[in-house]
Each structure stands twice: as C-alpha cells, then as structure tokens.
C-alpha cells in the first residue's frame, strides 16, 4: 500500500477510535478509473477505505463548513490547507473543532490529458512517483507522471501543507519559479476583438451546471448572486452575455482568495479551462500586491480585505 494511504488510515483510525473526531473527510477509491469519491469516514472500519493517490482532485475544504457542529479531521495537501486558512480567516469554520492531516503532495493527474494520450477507453490506471500506466482493451501506455499532471499542480509552489496537526509523509521539495500564465499572457496580447472571440469560444460549451462554483471552497455563499431572483443580477438562459456575466462575476469574487487548487476546472463536465479567467484575476493580484499568494499563513490578510492609511491607490481614500 502506498505510504500516504497507509499513514492516513492509521491516523484516521486512531482519531476515530480515541473519539477525538466524529468524522474524517478524505477520499475513497472511485468506481471508474481516474476518479476518487470524497468520503466521510465515521468509524475505524470506514477509515480503512480511505485512499491517497493522483486522483484526489477537487477540494475537500469545500465540505468543511457543513460540519460546523462536528469535530472534524480533514486530509489536506498544500492547496487545501491554504483554503482551510482562508475559511478560518473568513470565519466560516471553527478551527477548534478541526484536525488537519497534512499531505505533502506530488500533484494530481489530469484525467483529460491521460484520456487524450491513449487510443481507447482506459480501464485501469496505476502510478508511482515517476510513472503513470494507463491500460485498456489492446493497449498499455506508460507516461512520465510529470507530463500528465493537472495544469495547476505542475506549477504549484506550495505542495506542503501550510497548516496541519500531523503529516502523512515527509515534506516534499517545493518547485521553484515555474513558468506561469503562458496562455493568459497570450490572451492579454490580443486585440480586444480577438480577446472577445477567444472568451466566446472558451465558454461556448458551458452548460451552466455550476459544478465549477459548487466544487470551489471559496463559493460558500448560501445564495449565489447567479441564483438571486430579487433583484435578478444575471439572466438564466444560454445567452452568451449571461454566461459570460456568471463567469466574470465569479472570477472577481475569487480575487486574492484563489489558491489555484484547480477544483473548478477539474469539476467541469465540458472540459472548459475556467481557470484562464480566474487565473487572470489571480495574476493581477500577484502583480499589483507584492507577489501576494492567498492564504499561506494565518496572519497575513488578503490585500483586498485590509485598509492601509498609506495605501498607494488614492481611490480607497476618496
């Protein structure tokens, strides 16, 4: 059994047996290749089903606020731990009741990259630290793990959890100065017309299922602006302006808060690269606020939530 899975089960069982927590939030092996299912283990027997591998995509922090009346343990890699910091700072969860099992992460697999790289339907995937092997009827393809990582993971610089009670493995080396924003920079360089056409094409497959919102730990509003009916902020049809409004407004709401966990993009059934939009906002924050990256510690407040007398921008004082 891979060492992370083994350690996670051991820690989870102990926490549950000692009645330190009521539930451990983690993942169970999925029913189809390349998918795991979020799992809520409530006793030692259930804890034995927990797993950790390259298919723990999504972001478990988005389940936390629903368990505020419970003592909860959660399994968190770098990005998820940052979202937990955010939820604590934004007073959405009670950190007293929380136990974080931190996982130094080696990145999640991009299921779409894998599917595109093989000649048929994948029926089985195995992986180790270096390789991923995808099998199906009549083929077996071995790939470098680094080549099939999710787009957010291959440039992640916070793989080790920033907040934890216990770690499930040795810390991993952090990646230094990855190449970022290639596509976003290319879009920035376009003419306004080209840019509009690019965004139109990007979003044309959108079915407004809101999986991108619902998978995101930042989107915890009890009533999303897009659902409001009085006043109604956003039209509900497939009209491209309405679809765009949804995406732009949601992206603005992630400013200074997005941890680049990639849960939105992974959730999208249509394979839309929604992070090209929120990533632009994230880039602006990084460039305009001294390289700020969201929620790497409990103390630093996100730039858009603090007021400084010596703020270089005059408009906040006017």
């Amino acid at each position: 059994m891979p060492i992370r899975t083994e350690k996670i089960r051991k820690v989870a069982k102990k926490l549950l047996n000692d009645h330190r927590v009521d539930v451990v939030i983690g993942y169970k092996k999925g029913t189809i290749p390349l998918k795991n299912i979020p799992y809520f283990a409530k006793n030692a027997e259930e804890a034995d089903k927990l797993v950790w591998d390259g298919n723990c995509r999504g972001n478990l922090a988005s389940y936390l606020s629903r368990f505020n009346d419970k003592r909860v343990a959660i399994i968190a890699q770098g990005c998820v731990s940052r979202n937990i910091v955010g939820l604590i700072q934004e007073k959405q969860i009670n950190s007293d009741n929380l136990y974080i099992i931190g996982v130094p992460c080696t990145g999640m697999l991009d299921s779409r990259k894998l599917i595109a790289a093989v000649p048929g339907e994948i029926t089985e995937v195995t992986e180790n630290d270096l390789y991923v092997i995808a099998k199906g009827r009549g083929f077996e393809v071995t790939m470098n793990r680094g080549d099939v990582l999710s787009r957010n993971c291959d440039r992640c610089t916070v793989r080790n959890p920033v907040l934890f009670d216990e770690l499930a493995a040795e810390k991993v080396n952090e990646q230094k100065d990855p190449v970022r924003y290639e596509k976003i920079k290319a879009v920035e360089a376009m003419s306004p017309e080209e840019r509009a056409a690019f965004v139109d094409e990007l979003l044309s497959p959108c079915i407004r299922c809101y999986a991108c919102r619902d998978a995101c730990p930042l989107c915890y509003c009890p009533e999303c602006f897009v659902d409001k009916s009085s006043p109604q902020w956003c039209g509900k049809s497939q009209d491209s302006t309405d679809v765009l409004s949804y995406h732009l407004i949601r992206a603005f709401h992630t400013a200074g808060r997005c941890t680049e966990c990639g849960a939105c993009e992974d959730a999208c059934p249509m394979g839309i690269k929604v992070r090209l939009i929120s990533g632009k906002v994230e880039k602006e924050i990084r460039e305009n606020f001294d390289g700020y990256e969201a929620w790497k510690d409990l103390k630093t407040q996100p730039p858009l939530t603090v007021f400084k007398r010596d703020d270089p921008q005059p408009f906040v004082k006017e």
Binding site: P38, Y39, F40, S62, Y210, A211, P269
Partner: peptide, 15 residues
Amino acid sequence: GISEPCLNCSTCSYV
C-alpha cells in the same frame, strides 16, 4: 451517505 459527497451541481441532470 449517498448525498454526502454530492455538490448539488446540475451536471447529472443536464447530461
């Protein structure tokens, strides 16, 4: 138990 992981998105219904 079935509903615990559900995001209540509309993907399943729409597809």
